[in-house]
């Protein structure tokens, strides 16, 4: 098996082999760093290293657009999101990796991963991978405009329906993230009643970023309600009854 690989390397140019070796080194070091890093922030930075290495390997294989998208989407957006959540939850401290409550977990993991990796590599050596129909969705090489134009033509013609479906998926993900990040509405009720009382500052232990913004707005809504009740101001008559008090509170929940 190694002999075949060595012969194939001899055919390839030295530059390609050097680029692959360096990028593979960074990919593997970064991946191992993600697994063994005690600090989640360090794990995220190691993940950036792996993603850059994979982007270099994409460029090496005529996937220029995907390399750019990899850097922008993964290293630019996803890792930043990871770091944001790590900082937001305040878990950027070292953890004890040696602690493992399930005694059989690590030996089982080692055995499972090692056996499946060995099986994969053996399968790769034994089988000829270049099977199947060539160029079903269009040729990769020799197209006008290179691989970027070829990818654009494929995505907007052959894969147009999946492309539209991913647009819907992104909208659903955004809506889901907003719904998940909202505070539950029943948790707001006690806050609002206590805001009018002197010294009432919400229940302790439930302090989030929403509280800091929400409390003055709740106090404002309460003051408006008190003013309406004492006849100082009058709200427009065409509003339904329930909407008068709910509206300022609902707006304060938006961010």
């Amino acid at each position: 098996m190694l002999g075949v690989l060595v012969v194939q390397v001899a055919v390839a140019t030295k530059v390609d082999a050097a680029v692959f070796a360096i990028a593979a080194f960074f990919v593997l070091v970064g991946a191992i760093g993600v697994v063994v890093a005690r600090n989640p922030v360090h794990a995220a930075l190691m993940l950036v290293m792996t993603l850059f290495g994979v982007a270099v390997l994409f460029v090496e294989q005529q996937a220029n657009f995907l390399a750019a998208a990899q850097v922008i989407v993964y290293a630019g957006a996803i890792v930043v999101l990871f770091l944001f959540v790590i900082m937001f939850l305040g878990v950027d401290r070292r953890e004890n990796i040696a602690f493992e409550p399930l005694r059989a977990q690590r030996p089982l993991a080692v055995g499972l991963v090692a056996s499946s990796l060995a099986g994969l590599l053996l399968l790769g050596v034994a089988a000829h991978w270049s099977v199947g129909a060539h160029s079903v969705a269009g040729q990769l090489r020799g197209q006008p405009g290179g691989d970027v134009a070829a990818l654009g033509r494929a995505v907007f013609t052959t894969y147009l329906f999946p492309f539209e479906a991913t647009a819907a998926l992104l909208v659903i993900a955004v809506v889901g993230a907003v719904v998940l990040a909202r505070r539950p509405p029943q948790a707001r009720r006690p806050d609002r009643e206590q805001a009018a009382a002197p010294g009432g500052d919400g229940p302790p232990g439930d302090r989030t970023a929403g509280d800091v913004v929400g409390d003055p707005m709740d106090a404002l809504a309460q003051a408006v309600a008190n003013a309406v009740a004492s006849g100082l101001v009058s709200l427009p008559e065409d509003l339904p009854e329930g909407q008068r008090q709910e509206e300022p509170v609902g707006e304060s929940a938006a961010p």
Binding site: I78, I172, A177
Partner: peptide, 30 residues
Amino acid sequence: FARMLNDIGGQALVFFVLVVAAAEVVVGLG
């Protein structure tokens, strides 16, 4: 595989995997 088979379909699939991965991370971290 896209390079070995000279087929753009593999790269198009990676494009969709990128989108799904972004959505998955957003919802999971949420």
